[in-house]
Structures are given as structure tokens and as C-alpha cells.
Design a protein around this nucleic acid. Sequence first.
DNA 1: CATTCATATGAACAACTATTCATATGTTTA
DNA 2: TAAACATATGAATAGTTGTTCATATGAATG
Lengths: 126, 126
Amino acid sequence: MAEKIVYEVECCEEHLVHNELLRKVDGKVPDEEEIADLSDLFKVFGDATRLKILFVLFESEVCVCDLAEILNMTQSAISHQLKVLKQSKLVTNRREGKSIFYSLADSHVRSIIAQGREHIEEDVKK
Amino acid sequence: MAEKIVYEVECCEEHLVHNELLRKVDGKVPDEEEIADLSDLFKVFGDATRLKILFVLFESEVCVCDLAEILNMTQSAISHQLKVLKQSKLVTNRREGKSIFYSLADSHVRSIIAQGREHIEEDVKK
DNA sequence: CATTCATATGAACAACTATTCATATGTTTA
DNA sequence: TAAACATATGAATAGTTGTTCATATGAATG
């Protein structure tokens, strides 16, 4: 972001705290690349099918056809989504004979989802 | 999910641990409504513009036109995204004269994003 | 080694989403 | 109260994404 920050803001001239604000923000917004990586990661969590897959994997290592059965979806749809999950390194897999077993790759998965659930719970309370 | 679980799995007949697996998973995957709410929440994080807005708001309460300047985007684009952020209760706003100031609504925002960044960092290490 | 089973993959299509443009709403000030 | 300013919003469009269908790959088995 740093390269794009305009150091003299013209709008809202009344409160000229704004240049101070710019100094404060400068360097705190990650660069485009990290922002892109982050948003790509959250996009992966932003799909019902992928979330369901992750919730199943919270309980156990599971093969593709079992995932398809449990979630009542086609093997192809599950396989496509597992590919996405693997590309973002949220899951890993291992072959055992004909089957391929998937499992969680990372502890952040649990905490990210846990925080998301907490946020939603708070909405209900209020 | 509970209502959709098939209790007798036919695929991969070799390892018949599968019905045990189904018992294990049963009830652990949140229902469709919670899954939808969760994925909707993560979709909000899954956009570069909205992430940048949140990073700016980490530093300070900011009005719409300053956000537009800082992020070098049109006021309209920012306004549309602020609406999305507000609908998911990630930000709040208050009016001060002609300006409307936005700020973070929730502490989960920081921890969700922090966990996301940690996950990405790990990728770099390995 | 041909067949079967489990999974992966590419193309196609429908659904969704982010930005732009034009304009509306609401507040202040001259 | 008209003009100027800050923000919001609706419609349109281009780009993205998830599923399906058909098919390919790869391992086990008879």
C-alpha cells in the first residue's frame, strides 16, 4: 500500500486531523501481495461445501468417497473443492491403496473457524 | 446436517471403519443455517478492498472520503463495501456533521485476520 | 493385463460479486 | 432556501466461482 498513499488529503477540510491519520495508517496496511494472499485464504473459508468438509475433517481423516456420502454431494464436486483446500494448504492427503485420505494440515483452521463462530454467536445474543 | 447423513456407506468396502466414522461425525457438522452464516462471514473477509478497509480501521476511526483517498478508490466503491462490512456487523458508524465515521465493531475481526496472517506466514517458512 | 474401483480434471454453464456511472439522500452554510 | 459537500444506492457490466458431465489417471484384483 505504501506506494499508493496520498500524503495530502483534500476532502472533509473541517477536521484536519487527516494528515496525522495518514501518518498513522502508513505502513500498517499490508502490501498488495499479502492482502491478495489473505483474501484468497478467506475466500476458501467462504464456501459452504468447503466449510462442511473442514468440519468433517475436524473429527477424522476421511477419504473422498466418504466425504461425498456424508455431505450428500457428487464425488467430483468434493474433489474439486479438496483441490482448492489443498492449494491453500488447509488440508493434506495420503494414498492408501485405491483411496486417498484427507486430513487437516494446520491448527489455524480450527482457530479461524472458532473465531468466526464466536462472531456469529455474538450477533444472536444482541 | 444430521438429517442428511446416510447411515450405511457402500463405497470403499475394504475398510469398514466407515460407519463408526459416520457416528463420530454425526452432529459435529453445524446445521445448514450456521454453515451459511459462517461462509457468508468469511466471504466478507475474502475481498481485498474490504480487508484493506479493515486494516485502516485497525488504526483509527475513519470517514468514507478519507478511506477512498487512502485506498485510492472511488467513494462509491468504498461505500458499497462499507455496507457489506456493516451488514456482517464487522464495523459500525456514527455521523459527525456531513461526514460519517466508521470503526471496528468487534474484537473477533482482529483475531480472525491475525490467524489468517499466521497461516500465510507458515507457508513462507516451509 | 483387462476390469473395476477411487479419485482427478477439463470444459461448460449458471449464479454471484465488485466496480462504475448516474443519481438520490441528508447535512451544513452562505 | 439554494448551493455545496459527504455519503448512499440502484442498475449495468465484466469478471469470478461452484457444480455438473464426461472422461482421464492410477491402483488393486481376478
